[in-house]
Design a protein around this nucleic acid. Structure first.
Length: 586
RNA sequence: GCGCCCGUAGCUCAGAUGGAUAGAGUACCGCCCUCCGAAGGCGGGGGUCACAGGUUCGACUCCUGUCGGGCGCACCA
């Protein structure tokens, strides 16, 4: 609809430029918006005001000329100039009624477009360390990332969803050591658990599996292990040095092969758990990308070499540094430590190099806001590699604070006292979690009210929307019971009967859906869709209360049922994109 | 100290690339079920858009500064 008006204005603009009424170089992007106030028509453009400066003429005079040059259109019934120079368009009722057949014909495809056709986009999200179950902080990233990906797919982009698995590095070594120690305890060893170890119950689970399947094969006497360990923090020592020593002991006593076996047992177990968790959250990936594979394939080495060749690497104190400060980072960063091990950052450079080598036109990373300081160095690396840093879009997701009974829920990751995503799903359900996470824009600190999310009441915006859908289904069930006829094709013939104010409002909202989807997708703002659906549901509930649908007048009934059928379709489409169900009854 | 994000109604939040009197929900008050699900609808009060300057036809939106809140500033991932 917007597009049609844009075309009309463009033609008017062109003809004015040709006749010399406007300078030939005046070619602003034509902005069209929905009028807020019905008195201002259905659509408005500020084109005349945009032209005022370059044309050196008064906005209202330009608007007069534009209006005169506007080609006739069957849908536009009135055009007028208002305020400082707005051009307001009043559309015919028929123009809005036409949205019903277009929805019913397109069905679940209504609102989708081919805007991104042929473009490949990679979306990487969650990517939490596989050292434990996902918690509610990851949940927001999961819901947001999945929705952004689905929205882009709805715009025709070829979307590749990816989870970067940090299956290398110290944190994973700590996990492996933790698993081993729990295993030793199960095998009968009596030992103090490290202050810095992972203490969650899931570590016991992995250890139990290990013990069940391997017996005492991996057992070593604690007395022997402890003989070369420094003091832990509880004994006045350093917890970091202690855990590192435990890891070293594990590697030495078990040997590389068995150590790797324990390491992988923990990794596989937790990864399977995360995968299962996300699947139940309606979040799925095309690929799980292993960090370790970057080292094994030589990609890390290759990335460092490329940086060296372009002269952005220097050595200092035995380590290799990347001169990221040349590219706007606040300081230089280590790529290879003095002990010869490459850093996580080096892997990440290799990973992003790999992403671009795979030919994605756009790469989207979704990170927790606490990693924001990381953005400049990754972009710096891309630039140093000769890649375009603008191909990378980093979207930062703020934390969500949970509230229960009006109380803020405190959680600390270290002690293992955090609410997991799984617990959240069980408590409030996947639908509510997906919807609430995405209801706020991602850079907003969010208050997540658990009581509200699970309340079956009108305060809950998700229930409000789902209820509208269920109510429509209920009307159709009633129709069958009352044996009233409904024929979609007949309904489409009677759309001219939809003249009530509430019907007009509903038609207008329905016609907005494609615009909302496009804006939500391109701006990476799923909340726009969530808000829209609430408004649409509101239009429906209002209509429902004002007019009966199952009326005696068969033609009117057909028309109204066709209308609410298209409302049902749009609600289902919208909720589907948010990863939320549209129940037929509740 | 430096950097990033945020600061809109009592509370939770929208305000698309600057546009016509700043909007929802919730809470509070009043109304609407012999009628398709009242998990609903209608009406009402409630704001110096943190503060101060600046840019222009026009600023919640852009720029600068101040105040307040969050988060970062590792040879951890």
């Amino acid at each position: 609809m917007k597009q049609q008006i844009r075309t009309l204005l463009q033609q008017a603009l062109d003809s004015l430029k040709q006749s010399g009424a406007l300078p030939g170089d005046a070619s602003p992007t034509i902005q069209i918006e929905r009028s807020r106030d019905p008195a201002h028509g259905d659509f408005a453009s500020n084109l005349a005001m945009m032209l005022a400066k370059t044309a050196h003429r008064k906005p209202r005079d330009i608007a007069e000329d534009l209006m005169a040059a506007l080609p006739a259109s069957e849908h536009v019934v009135k055009v007028e100039i208002a305020g400082p120079g707005f051009i307001n368009f009043h559309l015919s009722q028929r123009a809005f009624q036409a949205v019903v057949p277009s929805i019913l014909e397109a069905g679940e495809h209504y609102g989708r477009s081919r805007l991104g056709a042929g473009k490949r986009v990679q979306v990487e999200f969650v990517s939490a360390n596989p050292t434990g179950p996902l918690h509610v902080g990851h949940g927001r990233g999961a819901a947001y990332g999945a929705t952004v990906a689905d929205l882009l797919a709805a715009m025709g982009f070829e979307v590749h969803r990816e989870y970067y698995v940090n299956d290398a590095g110290r944190q994973m070594d700590i996990l492996a050591a933790s698993v081993w120690l729990r295993y030793l305890e199960l095998a009968g060893e009596d030992l103090p658990f490290p202050v810095n170890g992972y203490k969650g119950d899931y570590v016991w689970d992995v250890a139990a599996k290990l013990h069940r399947e391997n017996g005492d094969r991996l057992r070593h006497a604690w007395s022997k292990i402890a003989s070369s360990l420094p003091a832990d923090e509880t004994d006045g020592g350093d917890k970091e040095k202690y855990i590192d020593a435990v890891i070293t002991q594990a590697k030495t006593l078990l040997g590389a092969k068995d150590y790797r076996f324990i390491f992988d047992t923990g990794l596989d177990y937790i990864l399977a758990d995360i995968r299962d968790d996300l699947a139940h959250f309606n979040v799925n990936y095309e690929q799980w990308f292993s960090e370790r594979s970057l080292t094994e394939s030589g990609a890390v080495e290759r990335a460092i070499e490329r940086l060296e060749k372009s002269g952005h690497v220097y050595e200092k104190e035995g380590a290799k540094w990347f001169r990221s400060s040349d590219f706007g980072d606040e300081k230089d960063r280590v790529l290879v430590r003095d002990n010869g091990q490459s850093t996580y950052f080096a892997s990440d450079i290799a990973y992003h190099m790999d992403k671009l080598e795979r030919g994605f036109e756009q790469v989207i990373d979704i990170w927790g806001a606490d990693h924001h300081g990381y953005v400049p160095r990754v972009k710096a690396a891309m630039q140093a590699l000769g890649d375009d840093p603008d191909k990378l879009d980093v979207l930062l997701v703020q934390f969500a604070v949970l509230y229960r009974g009006g109380e803020k829920m405190q959680m600390s990751t270290r002690s293992g006292q955090f609410v997991t995503l799984r617990q959240l799903r069980k408590e409030i359900g996947s639908d509510a979690a997906r919807f609430f996470y995405v209801m706020r824009k991602c850079e907003q600190h969010m208050d997540f009210d658990l009581d509200l999310a699970k309340s079956r009441s009108n305060d809950n915006p998700l229930y409000y929307i789902q209820y509208a859908h269920a109510r429509i289904c209920s009307v159709f069930r009633q129709r069958e019971e009352k044996k009233l006829s409904y024929d979609q094709a007949a309904g489409l013939q009677q759309l001219a009967r939809l003249t009530e104010k509430h019907e007009q409002a509903l038609l207008s909202s329905l016609s907005r859906y494609p615009e909302v989807l496009e804006a939500a997708a391109l701006n990476h703002e799923p909340h726009q869709l969530a808000h829209y659906l609430r408004e649409l549901a509101n239009d429906y509930h209002t209509y429902y209360n004002a007019h009966p649908f199952l009326v005696e007048d068969a033609d009117l009934r057909q028309a109204r049922l066709a209308l609410i059928q298209s409302v049902k379709q749009v609600i289902a489409n919208g909720l589907g994109l948010l990863g939320v169900s549209a129940p037929e009854s509740m």
